[in-house]
Design a protein around this nucleic acid. Structure first.
Lengths: 88, 88
DNA sequence: CTGTTTGAAGCTGATATCGAAGTCACATTA
DNA sequence: TAATGTGACTTCGATATCAGCTTCAAACAG
């Protein structure tokens, strides 16, 4: 069984990390102790608090078995690329 | 044209963000000014500095057009996942 | 040569992250 | 009733992130 999802913001990322933790049958305290961090951090990460360090993020990704993929494609070149992209 | 890649650590994430920025024809200073942050932060992010805030990360992902996907599956129950991943 | 733009990088101070420890309500057990 | 474990959430203090500013070398144009 594999769960997938696009990660647009901190909330979506937190949900995926929570899924990963629960699939491993770990509590927030167990995961925090394994990572050598506080339980509050795990909770804040899962809640989608935006101001967190990417360092801890990658540790948590490894511990929860969540894999991350990035994808980028070129903007349209045949139109004038002088305007800002309108997907905000 | 679309570039894809798994993001295992801060370095891989930085490379994808740099690709995204360059594909949009932006300099580090331009991107930094657009985000209201410092140029050094953009450089550090692209270099793969681990201790950076996810808040700025998601802003930078949007600005560079880089999309992020997460994927998680259930762990093996018959073995212990006690070993570290070997790409360190 | 002079000026501009680029990425790379140092320094300083204000802010906030984060670990540690604790609290609380709720659920499950004995 | 009491003990235990969970997620949610607080306060406190040391540390470090980050913006702002500056500098530097290289590339390029005028």
């Amino acid at each position: 069984m594999t769960l997938r999802g696009q990660v647009r913001n901190a909330e979506a990322l937190g949900r995926m990390l929570q899924q990963g933790r629960m699939l491993h049958g770990m509590s927030q305290r167990q995961l925090a102790e394994q990572l050598g961090i506080g339980q509050k951090w795990v909770w804040e990460m899962e809640q989608g608090k935006p101001g967190l360090l990417t360092e801890r993020l990658f540790e948590m990704l490894r511990a929860t078995g969540v894999r991350l993929y990035a994808e980028v494609d070129e903007p349209e070149e045949d139109a004038h690329p002088s305007e800002l992209s309108s997907d905000e």
